[in-house]
Design a protein around this nucleic acid. Structure first.
Length: 502
RNA sequence: GCCAAGGUGGCAGAGUCUGGUCAGACGCAGCGGCCUGCAGAGCCGCCCAACGCCGGUUCAAAUCCGGCCCUUGGCUCCA
């Protein structure tokens, strides 16, 4: 069984192939603001792809760029006292981005290249394109001539004539064709561009951003070259997978193909994967629209596991809706997985788990879950179906534990035992598939604070138990409610109360 | 206007490539039962219900073809 993915360039589902190492390039973000859940959706799907490829035996070389040169970054210079240059702003948001990535439990990329580190490579790429006749200099800027690249438009099905018809030649007199795009822009950020993106009043000073010397004079890299230069530098001329948001298909990725293939003469990417948008109230979550939920805020409010379970609720290539309802659903799905995992571990580690106990249904359910999970993942990374395989396993685990508990309560039989091997296999399946592949974290860390909190909760539960024995149920219920208010969920069972931190 | 992705039950979301085995699985919400002092969790059952519209091809269409309507994205910084 092999992995099938939906390839934007081929415009169909294709079998994924790679020789040895897989090179994966993820079109990262521009660090002009805090990352939001829309950005994180791409990160998550790239991360799960990375994890799944490793799971099925590939070595993955994952490179994800950080665009730290951009007029939106420049526009924020001076917004804070310590933001006196473009790179100060970029550094601040790069830091929050890395924090967010760690918080989301993403595997680290091999490198996170920045534009500011790769200006020499960008200049070389531009020079090559000029030498080969694909690009031309004009007033200190350099443009890619789209008419020289016969396949221009092949990714997004644009045709150059249509694009030309849309352009306004008067305004872009610097260009040969309206659809030509900049590889190198003369001088710094223009005053109008900076003002357009500014979120505050700069007073008399309008920031112009950093410039670098070049054969065409001082200037800044264009908006698309950076990805071509950085991906090629770190992963070679042909990438196995190029991944990005669907909103980048045109012009960004179209232009990357043109630049890269014109320069190297090689195919730029074997597979193009595009992640659908995250829609909030029917509209794209976007920094510019302002309808976003930042990753740090979402991590505080929901936690990494709920966020990841949420993303796993829809296919990467589909649009996904973020609403109170879909978040609530993700919370419930995660809780169910996590509770069942805890329950399975507790039964597995108890003295009642025996070598010779055997529940055929449970063992069969583990095999089915693994098979279904793999089939779903290989089928264009159908994460909801893969998650469903794990949820079906929770059903089997709960049935097994329920049945044994019921037998144990029955004085007549009194020989109930948990199926040790079956539970062990179930726990391993949760850990490998839910943990390693989906990146969910089943085991809570038990640092000092958590331990202390646990001891305090136990203490309160003892008090509550005494109240219950005395028949003071109202008091007992008050205690349970009070604990819930601070995030501790109490569950009464046959062997006393248990608790979990929400 | 041009290009692209979509429109499936109360919600959410597969299935479309490769027509029949599908209107599925998981879940959320809702309802009933078991269990429980109550609640929660868990288990069992129910939810008699949906393929945007109009044509066409076919023995057979959610799936293929044509037309139309609507939503979203891109064409300008964007994941």
């Amino acid at each position: 069984m092999s992995l099938v993915v939906t390839d934007t360039l081929a415009d169909e589902r294709v079998e994924f192939t790679a020789d040895g190492d897989v090179t994966l390039y993820v079109c990262g973000l521009t660090v002009s603001d805090d990352p939001h859940l829309g950005h994180a959706r791409l990160w998550f799907h790239a991360d799960v792809l990375h994890r799944w490829l490793e799971h099925i035996g590939y070595d993955v070389r994952h490179v994800e760029n950080v665009t730290d040169v951009n007029e939106k970054i420049t526009a924020r210079v001076g917004e804070r006292d310590d933001w006196s240059e473009e790179r100060d702003v970029a550094a601040a948001f790069t830091a929050t981005t890395f924090d967010a990535m760690r918080g989301l439990n993403l595997l680290r990329a091999e490198v996170y290249p920045r534009v500011t580190e790769h200006v020499p490579e960008i200049r070389e790429l531009v020079e090559t394109l000029i030498e080969k006749g694909y690009a031309y200099e004009s007033n200190g800027s350099v443009y890619f001539d789209v008419t020289t690249f016969a396949e221009y438009g092949k990714l997004s099905n644009q045709n150059v004539a249509d694009l030309e018809a849309q352009g306004e030649p008067d305004e872009r007199s610097e260009k040969r064709n309206p659809a030509d795009f900049a590889l190198w822009k003369a001088d710094g950020v223009s005053e109008t561009a900076a003002r357009e993106h500014a979120k505050h009043d700069h007073g008399a000073e309008t920031p112009t951003g950093e410039t670098w010397p070049s054969p065409w004079g001082d200037g800044r890299p264009g908006w698309h070259v950076e990805c071509s230069a950085m991906s090629t530098t770190h992963l070679g001329d042909t990438l196995d997978i190029h991944m990005g948001g669907r909103d980048l298909v045109f012009p960004h990725h179209e232009n990357e193909i043109a630049q890269s293939e014109a320069a190297t003469g090689e195919r730029f990417a074997r597979h193009w994967l595009h992640v659908g948008l995250l829609a909030m109230d029917g509209e794209k979550m976007s920094s510019s629209i302002g309808n976003f939920w930042t990753v740090p805020d979402a991590l505080d409010e929901l936690g990494v596991n709920v966020i990841r379970t949420f993303y796993a609720g829809a296919a990467y290539r589909s649009e996904q809706a973020l609403t109170e309802g879909t978040i609530a659903e993700a919370e419930e799905r995660w809780e169910r997985l996590s509770r069942t995992y805890d329950r399975a571990v507790a039964a597995l580690d108890s003295v009642d788990a025996r070598a010779k106990a055997e529940d055929g249904d449970l063992r069969e359910a583990v095999t089915d879950a693994r098979d279904d999970f793999a089939a779903a993942m290989n089928d264009d990374l159908n994460l909801r179906e893969a998650t469903a395989a794990l949820l079906e396993l929770t059903d089997a685990v709960n049935r097994h534990v329920d049945a044994v508990d019921a037998d144990a309560d029955d004085e007549a039989t009194n020989e109930a035992a948990y199926d040790y091997r079956g539970l062990r296999e179930a726990v391993e399946a949760f850990a490998e598939l839910g943990g390693d592949v989906l990146g969910l974290q089943f085991e809570a860390e038990s640092d000092g604070e958590v331990e202390l909190a646990g001891e305090l909760v136990e203490l309160i539960l003892d008090v509550r138990e005494a109240e219950r024995e005395a028949g003071n149920y109202e008091r007992a219920d008050d205690l349970r409610d009070a604990l819930r208010d601070v995030g501790v969920e109490i569950e009464d069972g046959p062997d006393g109360a248990t608790y979990r931190f929400e």
